[in-house]
């Protein structure tokens, strides 16, 4: 294995985040803090508890997921799209690196950045609302799986996109609506029955539900199903990336 290559790609990507500290870390944290102020404090005080959890605390896992999903996708897609756009990808393609090593470097760095953002948001939430984590190990597992699987998804978008518009298309038009409609700010049980059924087709519901369970032991769907859905998404992403690498899709002519 070309460990040096994985190290330099990972380091390069992390350095990029460090050099754009405000954009990489401060921006998502400030946005999430604003959500806490508006939904948690201002509106949340007028909303009754949901499944026995104060509203301000209830939205923490959803807000973390919102940030994790968008950041994982943004970091990973930009990480591979930009070298393609500038042409510097030639160096990676001509180096003695396997696709697994490329993946470990780029996706590993994107997932790490998202993980750091998630943990900062969690710490920030502690300043605004009372917070307890019922199952810290499961919380960490959901956090990690989400970061990795959506970084993989972002990597796929970055490989697929051949212009900046396409790079933004799926995150803006698909992911953000799915997260907002996936129970970030409410319990699925609060919806009319027909919409509860429709919501079950939204994969993000399973992520948020499982993650919320690890905090408060309340969930919209069973934890086992949530975990299975995250793992299934991870496997699908791996299969797609594997196919893209095998065929050289948008990388090798």
């Amino acid at each position: 294995m070309n460990v040096q290559a994985v190290k330099v790609i990972y380091k390069y990507e992390m350095l990029r985040a460090w050099e754009t500290l405000l954009q990489s870390f401060a921006s998502p944290v400030i946005s999430t803090a604003l959500y806490f102020v508006v939904f948690g404090s201002a509106i949340g005080e007028r909303i009754a508890q949901i499944d026995g959890v104060p509203y301000g605390s209830f939205i923490v896992p959803g807000l973390m997921m919102l940030a994790l999903l968008t950041q994982s996708i943004a970091n990973a897609s930009f990480g591979i799209f930009f070298p393609k756009f500038t042409g510097t990808i030639y160096e990676v393609m001509s180096a003695p690196v396997s696709f697994l090593e490329i993946l470990l470097g780029y996706v590993g760095a994107a997932a790490t950045k998202s993980l750091i953002i998630g943990l900062i948001i969690l710490a920030t939430a502690g300043f605004f609302v009372p917070l307890e984590i019922a199952h810290p190990v499961w919380m960490a597992a959901f956090l990690l799986l989400t970061c990795v699987s959506f970084s993989l998804f972002g990597f796929i978008i970055g490989l697929w996109a051949d212009d900046f518009e396409k790079l933004q298309l799926i995150p803006l038009l698909v992911i953000t609506p799915l997260v907002f409609l996936g129970g970030s700010f409410y319990s699925v049980n609060m919806l009319p029955p027909i919409w509860q059924t429709v919501t079950l087709f939204n994969p993000v519901v399973y992520l948020i539900s499982g993650f919320r369970w690890s905090f408060f032991e309340v969930s919209d769907v069973s934890v086992g199903v949530s975990l299975a859905m995250v793992l299934a998404f991870l496997v699908v992403c791996l299969l797609v990336v594997g196919w893209m690498f095998r065929t050289g899709y948008r990388l090798r002519q």
């Binding site: 070309n2 040096q4 330099v8 790609i9 500038t86 042409g87 160096e91």
Partner: peptide, 28 residues
């Protein structure tokens, strides 16, 4: 390989970009 176009990371520093290339090819 030295490509025809000046394909470089414009925000990278000279030292860093050479170290990156060396590592990419598996050299310590």
């Amino acid at each position: 390989l030295v490509p025809q176009e000046l394909t470089l990371g414009h925000f990278d520093k000279v030292w860093n970009t050479l170290c990156f290339s060396r590592g990419l090819f598996g050299k310590a």
